[in-house]
Design a protein around this nucleic acid. Structure first.
Lengths: 98, 98
DNA sequence: CAACTTGGTAAGTGTTAACTTACCGTTAGT
DNA sequence: ACTAACGGTAAGTTAACACTTACCAAGTTG
């Protein structure tokens, strides 16, 4: 979640939706230096949002489907708890008004 | 999305799942000062994640359901695009292997 | 092997932002 | 009206972080 806080990282993820890409190509697509991209990719990798593999001298980064599954799970669970609590409050209020 | 970058703010949201709460109560539940909570709440409010209303001298903050709906929408759309791109790549690969 | 491409990392810099204390306005109760 | 409770805001400090340049390691190609 912390990894999603930075706009550049979100942009990198958005770019990776279209398919895997090596670091250099990503750096060319963005108005920041290649090392900056590398550092962002490290954060994204530590957050398990992307995976990487070597391809010659290149290193290809790709979206990690599992991460987004668990991210969605997180939201569903969060929202689920909130809904249950909301229902309980409504019931409680009705009971008092009776 | 930027608003979700901070752990304290996520904790505040998690607390608000259980129901609305005034600033002072939130401040007592967290290891930071009341002004810090106020500032976080302002960010959350600007991000439309919470709503607030006056109640005497208290100010009650509450989760905003709409925000989470649109947040989920965001993820669904994001993930949808990625899936479509993935499918296209698979088809393309099959065509080439033939 | 030599030259080139690619990318990770170290070191340094500037800005942001999360926190603190201090202060002020507003509402409630006696 | 006075006092207490509540909370927003201003000002200042400190730590985090997004970025840069410089350097180095590893792989590919002639």
């Amino acid at each position: 979640m912390d990894a999603l806080g930075d706009p550049t990282r979100r942009a990198i993820l958005a770019r990776l939706r279209r398919g895997p890409a090596p670091v250099g190509k990503l750096a060319r697509d963005f108005p920041v230096s290649r090392p900056a991209i590398s550092q962002h990719l490290r954060v994204l990798k530590e957050a398990n949002l992307v995976t990487d593999r070597a391809d010659g001298t290149k290193r290809v980064y790709e979206l990690n489907p599992e991460a987004f599954a668990s991210l969605r799970e997180y939201f569903d669970e969060f929202w689920g708890v909130a809904l249950i609590a909301f229902k309980k409050r409504v019931e409680h209020r009705n009971r008092e008004e009776r």
